[in-house]
Amino acid sequence: MLNLRVDDFMVELKDGAIKNVGPSNKTGSAKLFDVESAEVREFGDKRVKLVFEDDEGNEVQVALFPENVRKIASDIENLEDDSPVFE
């Protein structure tokens, strides 16, 4: 299940084209639940891409610099040691 939230979002659809309407102060978040597959691969010369997909074909991609990936890997290790989720 993909959950999208976009604040202050308005677009104009005209002749098949989408155009931003209003100021460019929009914010948004995406959440993907019930992930069926997760993949890690190189992205360009300096980043790592994490790709998550659910059973409905919804996909979220996140490109991170290596230091962010290392921090997440460390956080996962710490969670494995302390959380009953991994038991």
Rank of each mutant, 00 (worst) to 15 (best):
M1F: 06
M1N: 12
L4N: 13
L4D: 00
V6Q: 03
D7T: 14
D8T: 01
F9M: 02
F9I: 05
F9V: 10
F9G: 11
F9D: 04
M10E: 04
M10L: 09
M10F: 10
M10Q: 12
M10S: 06
M10I: 01
E12S: 09
E12V: 03
E12K: 09
L13S: 01
L13M: 05
L13N: 09
K14F: 08
A17M: 02
A17W: 06
A17K: 08
I18C: 06
I18S: 04
K19D: 01
N20Y: 02
N20A: 03
N20S: 05
V21Q: 14
V21R: 02
G22E: 12
G22W: 01
G22T: 09
P23Q: 14
S24T: 15
S24C: 14
S24M: 08
K26D: 00
K26W: 04
K26N: 05
G28S: 14
G28L: 07
G28P: 01
G28H: 09
G28D: 08
L32D: 00
L32M: 10
F33K: 15
D34C: 01
D34E: 06
D34H: 14
D34L: 12
V35Q: 02
V35G: 02
V35S: 03
E36G: 14
A38D: 10
A38V: 13
E39D: 03
F43A: 08
F43M: 11
D45A: 15
K46Y: 15
R47K: 08
R47C: 00
V48E: 09
V48W: 00
K49Q: 13
K49D: 09
V51S: 07
F52C: 07
E53G: 05
E53R: 12
D54E: 10
D54Q: 13
D54P: 10
D55V: 07
D55L: 09
D55Y: 06
D55I: 03
E56D: 15
E56G: 11
E56T: 06
G57V: 03
N58L: 02
E59Y: 08
V60A: 05
V60T: 07
Q61Y: 14
Q61L: 07
V62G: 05
V62F: 08
A63G: 14
A63N: 15
F65S: 11
P66K: 00
V69C: 10
V69Q: 00
R70P: 06
R70H: 15
K71P: 02
K71M: 10
K71G: 13
I72M: 06
I72T: 07
I72V: 11
I72L: 11
I72P: 00
S74C: 06
S74I: 09
D75F: 11
D75S: 07
I76N: 11
I76E: 04
E77P: 04
N78V: 10
N78Y: 00
L79G: 06
L79T: 06
L79N: 02
E80T: 12
E80N: 14
D81K: 04
D81Q: 12
D81W: 01
D81L: 13
D81C: 01
P84T: 05
P84A: 02
F86L: 06
E87S: 15
